[in-house]
Design a protein around this nucleic acid. Structure first.
Length: 833
RNA sequence: GCCGGGGUGGUGAAAUCGGUAACCACAGGGGACUUAAAAUCCCCCGGGAGCAAUCCCUUGCGGGUUCGAAUCCCGCCCCCGGCACCA
C-alpha cells in the first residue's frame, strides 16, 4: 500500500489531515495568541463571490498561490493569519436569483456552504474563526457605519447627476462598470439618466492616491493602471469673457471693439481647462458640452431651435454611439461669442458632444491647428485654423493639413513668438493671470464614486429623508438598517429601488425632529462591502465595533495581498481611499491598506480564458477527487509563472502526479541510519537556496522544477535515498502539498503538524559550494569544448587544460591568437584571426 | 491612438547585473517487466549534414554595440490585457 500514491491521494490522507487541522486549531488562533502575536503576517487573498456554480479553476489557482505563500511564511516562523470570506451581495447574485426564480436570502447560504466545502477540500490554511459574509447584518451593520463616517465627514454627498443607466439590469452603473459604453455585466449599451445619487468624494483624494503609489510594493502593471485611471494632467484654467452675439450667422472670429466688450461687462466668464495654454493665440472658437450650464445664456434667439434640437438628441443618445471616436464630429453654433483674452478677437461658441461635461470645466478652447479633434471639427464646419507653433523647418504661415501636435516654437503669438512651448505655457498663463483670467491648474480624470444602486440585494444606505431636516444619518445605535425580505425584488424601468415598494419598511420618523420621514431606499454598491473587509477579518465576531484598535494595530496593514488584476482600479482604489479616510478620521494609524500586492495571471485553456460561453471550463471537483488536492495544487503552480498565468492542459497533471508519487516512495523507503551522500547533499543545499529565494518571490514554477531536479538526483540510477536526503525536501514541498507533507512528516516519526513543528531547512553555503566547474572554451565566441577544473582555477591553469583539448587545439591552429578573455569559473574565449 | 505585459523546440516553459540557449515537465518514439493491458522503470527527443568525430543553422523581423547578445541600443511586425474624443 505504501508503494502506490493513489491509495492515499484521493481521499483518506487529505481528509484525515483536514480533520486534524480543524480538531487541533492548526490554522486558527486562541484569542490570546491572536492578540499577542509576536511575528504576525497577514496573508490576504481576494474573497470570492459565492456563485451557484462553485469555485472555478481561476479561484483555486489564485487561492492556492496565496496559500503557498502563507504556508511558506508560516514555516519561516511567522504567525500567519489567512482568512477567507464571501462577497455575496450584489447584482450578480440578484440577477441569478431572478433567473432561477428564487430569493437570494435562500440561495446565498447554500452557495456559501458549497464554497466552504470546496475551500476546505483544496487544503487552504484558512482561519475559519475569522470569516466574513458581507450579506450578514453583523457585517453590513459596519458597512453602514462606514457610510455614516463618510457622511459625517462631508465626504458623502447627494447630488443629481447624469448617470450611466443599464436598461437591461435596470440600475445605475459606476463609470468603472461601463466597458466601452456598455454594461460590464450584460453588454447592453448604457444610457444617460439624471437621478439623485449618493457620491463619495474620492476626487478629494486623487493626488494622495497618486502620490502614495510610489511607496507601495505592488505589481507595476497595477500601479500603472491606477495612475492612468486617476489621470492627472497639468495645464491651466483660462477664463474667456462672454460677449454679446454680433453677427450670429458668421462662424469666423472677428476683431471686436474693446469699448463694446467693456459695455457688456466682463464679469461673466466661460472657463476652460487646457494642457496647452501655449496655444492660446490659436484658439479660434470654443466648444461646450451640450449639457453645459451656460449654453442657454450664450444661445442667440436665431440659433435657439437648432441648439435645443442638438441638446435633446445628445441627451437621448446612448453613450456607445456618443463615445465613438471615429465618427464624424457633430455640433451646432450657439450664436454666442467669447473674447480670446490673448488676441482680443471675438470667437464663436459651439456645442458638440465630443466635449465631455464631466471632465475639466465641460468646455474647451478649440485650437484646431494643434489638436486633432479640434482640427476635424474646424475642417468639417469651415472654421478658422491658425498655426501658432512651428517646427524648425516650418514657415509660420504654412497652412496645416493636420493638427501639429509636436514640439516647436511659438509663431503668430505676439510678444511670445520664438518661445518654446514649455516656456510659453508658463509665460502666457502668467500674462493672462495678471488680468485674473488664468492660472496653472491640475485636473484628474477620476470621478467621484457613485455608490447608490436602485436595486434590492445590498445594504440599505443608512439615511432618513426628512422634509424639515433633509438627509439625516441613522444613529449608530440603530444600526443595522436591516434589509427586509422582499419577495418581489425585480427592478422596474422606473429607476426606483425595489425597497421603495415596501411602504411599511421605508416609513419612519426623523431621528432629529421626530416628524414623519422616509428611509433612503437605495442600497449601496458592492464595492463598498469589499472596500473594507480586510479590516473586519481580524475583528470578525466583535459586535461593538467595526474593528478593534489593538488587534488592528497588530495585524494591519496587510502584509501580502494576492488577487486578480481585473480589480486593479476598482476595488483596490476604493479600498485605498476608504483606508485614507479612516486614517484621517483617526480610526486607523496607517493610510495604505496593502503593503505588497501581487496580481496573479490567468489560466488559459485551448487558447482562451476559461469561460462558460467558450465551453473550455474545467470543473475542479472531479480532478481533485481523482488526483487529490495536493497534486492539483502542484500542477496549477507548475503551469507557468504565477504572475503570468499559464496554459491548462489536461495531460499536464501527470507530471506533478508522478513527482509526488516518487516523493512518497522515496521517503517511505529512505534508509534512516545512513548519512547523506556528499554530492546529493550539495545538490540539496543548492535546492534549499533556490526554493527559499524563489518562494518569497512567488516564483512557484521554478521552485517546483528545482525540487523535481533534486529528487531526480536523489533517485539517480535507482539508488535508495538516505533519510537525511529526503526529510528536508518534505518541508520544502509542504507549502505546495500540505497533506502529503503532514503524512510524511508523521511517518518520519514527528509529533504534530509540520507547519507548527518543522523548521525551514537551513541553507549552508559551504555545503552548497561546488569544488569543480565545467569551464566553457570558446574560439571566436563559438563553443569548442569544455574543461573540468577546480573551482577558482586561474587563467594559466584554464588555458593549459583548454589547449590540451583536441577540438580546441584544432580551432586555435587556424590563426593567430589576438586576445584571450577569461571569466573565472565560466568561460575562456580565444579571439583568433 | 496611449499605457502595461509578452513573442524561445511538437506543447507548457527555463536561462535576462551580456558568458555553454532550451532546466523541469507534457506529448511523441524505442526498450524492460507482463499471457496481455494498466501502472512502473530505462533510453532518445530544436532543425540540417555526416558511419562517426564534428560542423552549420536556430530565441518575431531588420540593423547596431561587443571577444561574446534570448538578454543592451535603434527601427519595425505580431499577440494578450487595460484605458480611450479626458482638451
Amino acid at each position: 500500500m505504501d508503494d502506490d500514491i493513489r491509495d492515499w491521494i484521493a481521499s483518506e490522507i487529505e481528509r484525515k489531515w483536514q480533520a486534524y487541522w480543524d480538531d487541533h486549531g492548526t490554522n486558527s488562533f486562541t484569542e490570546e495568541a491572536f492578540r499577542g502575536a509576536v511575528n504576525p503576517f497577514y496573508n490576504l487573498m481576494m474573497f470570492p463571490y459565492p456563485s451557484a456554480e462553485g469555485l472555478h479553476v481561476g479561484n483555486i489557482y489564485a487561492f492556492t498561490g496565496a496559500d503557498v505563500h502563507g504556508r511558506f511564511q508560516r514555516l519561516r516562523g511567522h504567525e500567519v493569519f489567512e482568512p477567507i470570506g464571501f462577497d455575496a451581495f450584489g447584482i450578480h447574485s440578484e440577477n441569478f436569483a431572478l433567473k432561477v426564480g428564487a430569493h437570494p436570502m435562500d440561495l446565498i447560504p447554500a452557495n456559501i456552504e458549497n464554497f466552504t466545502r470546496q475551500l476546505r477540500r483544496i487544503g487552504g490554511m484558512f482561519d475559519w474563526d475569522h470569516t466574513v459574509d458581507t450579506t450578514h447584518p453583523d457585517y453590513y451593520r459596519w458597512t453602514q457605519w462606514l457610510f455614516l463616517k463618510l457622511f459625517d465627514a462631508g465626504l458623502a454627498e447627494r447630488k443629481e447627476a447624469p448617470v450611466n443607466w443599464c436598461p437591461s439590469c435596470m440600475t445605475v452603473l459606476a463609470n468603472e462598470q461601463v466597458i466601452g459604453g456598455a454594461c460590464e455585466r450584460c453588454d447592453t449599451p448604457v444610457e444617460q439618466r439624471r437621478i439623485a445619487q449618493w457620491f463619495f468624494r474620492i476626487t478629494d483624494y486623487a493626488q494622495r492616491l497618486l502620490d502614495n503609489l510610489d511607496t507601495l510594493d505592488w505589481s507595476e502593471t497595477t500601479k500603472k493602471a491606477q495612475r492612468n485611471w486617476i489621470g492627472r494632467s497639468e495645464g491651466a484654467e483660462i477664463a474667456f469673457p462672454l460677449v454679446a452675439a454680433c453677427d450670429a450667422t458668421s462662424g469666423t472670429p472677428k476683431a471686436i471693439d474693446p469699448s463694446e466688450v467693456k459695455a457688456l461687462g466682463e464679469e461673466e466668464m466661460l472657463r476652460v481647462f487646457t494642457t496647452r495654454p501655449d496655444t492660446l493665440f490659436g484658439a479660434t472658437f470654443m466648444v461646450l458640452a451640450p449639457e453645459h450650464p451656460l449654453v442657454d445664456r450664450l444661445t442667440s434667439d436665431q440659433q435657439r431651435a437648432e441648439v435645443r434640437e442638438y441638446r435633446t438628441a445628445a441627451a437621448a443618445a446612448d453613450l456607445v454611439s456618443r463615445q465613438k471616436t471615429d465618427k464624424v464630429k457633430t455640433g451646432v453654433f450657439t450664436g454666442g461669442y467669447c473674447r480670446n483674452p490673448a488676441t482680443g478677437e471675438a470667437i464663436p461658441v459651439w456645442i458638440a458632444d465630443y466635449v465631455l461635461v464631466d471632465y475639466g470645466t465641460g468646455a474647451i478652447m478649440a485650437v484646431p491647428g494643434h489638436d486633432p479633434r479640434d482640427f476635424d471639427f474646424a475642417s468639417h464646419f469651415g472654421l478658422l485654423i491658425r498655426r501658432v507653433v512651428a517646427g524648425a523647418d516650418e514657415h509660420p504661415d504654412e497652412p496645416l493639413e493636420a493638427a501639429a501636435t509636436g514640439e516647436g516654437t511659438l509663431v503668430n503669438s505676439g510678444r511670445f513668438d520664438g518661445l518654446s512651448s514649455d516656456e510659453a505655457i508658463r509665460a502666457i498663463t502668467a500674462w493672462i493671470g495678471e488680468r485674473g483670467l488664468g492660472e496653472l491648474r491640475v485636473n484628474y480624470r477620476l470621478h467621484d464614486w457613485c455608490i447608490s444602486r436602485q436595486r434590492y440585494w445590498g445594504p440599505p444606505i443608512p439615511i432618513v429623508h426628512c422634509d424639515a431636516c433633509g438627509p439625516v444619518g441613522v444613529p449608530e445605535d440603530q444600526l443595522p438598517v436591516e434589509l427586509p425580505r422582499v419577495e418581489d425584488f425585480k427592478p422596474l424601468d422606473d429607476g426606483v429601488s425595489p425597497l421603495a415598494r415596501d411602504e411599511a419598511w421605508y416609513r419612519t420618523t426623523c431621528p432629529e425632529c421626530g416628524r414623519d420621514a422616509r428611509r433612503e431606499t437605495d442600497v449601496s454598491d458592492t464595492f463598498l462591502d469589499s472596500g473594507w473587509y480586510f479590516l473586519r477579518y481580524p475583528s470578525a465576531g466583535l459586535d461593538d465595533r467595526a474593528f478593534d484598535p489593538e488587534i488592528t494595530r497588530r495585524w494591519l496593514p496587510v502584509d501580502t495581498y494576492i488577487g486578480g488584476n481585473e480589480h486593479a482600479v476598482l476595488h483596490l482604489l476604493y479600498a485605498r481611499f476608504l483606508t485614507m479616510v479612516l486614517n484621517d478620521l483617526g480610526h486607523l494609524d496607517f493610510d495604505e491598506p496593502f503593503t505588497t500586492f501581487r496580481a496573479h495571471g490567468l489560466i488559459i485553456r485551448n487558447g482562451a480564458k476559461m469561460s462558460k460561453s467558450r465551453g473550455n471550463v474545467i470543473v475542479p471537483d472531479p480532478i481533485i477527487e481523482r488526483y487529490g488536492a495536493d497534486t492539483f495544487r502542484v500542477y496549477l503552480m507548475f503551469l507557468g509563472p504565477f504572475e503570468e498565468g499559464g496554459d491548462y492542459r489536461d495531460e499536464g497533471i501527470e507530471g506533478p502526479r508522478g513527482f509526488l508519487s516518487r516523493v512518497w516512495d522515496s521517503v517511505m523507503h529512505a534508509e534512516a541510519d545512513r548519512v547523506a551522500d556528499p554530492e546529493v547533499e550539495r545538490k540539496l543545499h543548492q535546492t534549499i537556496a533556490q526554493v527559499t529565494e524563489q518562494l518569497a518571490d512567488l516564483q512557484y514554477n521554478t521552485s517546483i522544477a528545482a525540487m523535481m531536479e533534486y529528487l531526480n538526483s536523489v533517485r539517480a540510477g535507482g539508488r535508495t535515498p538516505a533519510r537525511a536526503e529526503v526529510e528536508p525536501l518534505v518541508v520544502l514541498l509542504a507549502p505546495f502539498a500540505p497533506h502529503l507533507a503532514e503524512e510524511l512528516w508523521a511517518h518520519l516519526g514527528h509529533e504534530g503538524s509540520i507547519f507548527e513543528a518543522a523548521p525551514w531547512p537551513d541553507f549552508d553555503p559551504a555545503k552548497a559550494k561546488e569544488d569543480t566547474v565545467d569551464l566553457a572554451v570558446q574560439v571566436n565566441g563559438r563553443l569548442r569544448g569544455t574543461v573540468h577544473l577546480p573551482l577558482g582555477a586561474d587563467q594559466a591553469t584554464a588555458e593549459a587544460a583548454a589547449r590540451a583539448e583536441e577540438n580546441v587545439a584544432r580551432h586555435l591552429g587556424e590563426g593567430e591568437i589576438r586576445r584571450v578573455i577569461h571569466v573565472p569559473d565560466r568561460l575562456l574565449n580565444y579571439v583568433v584571426s
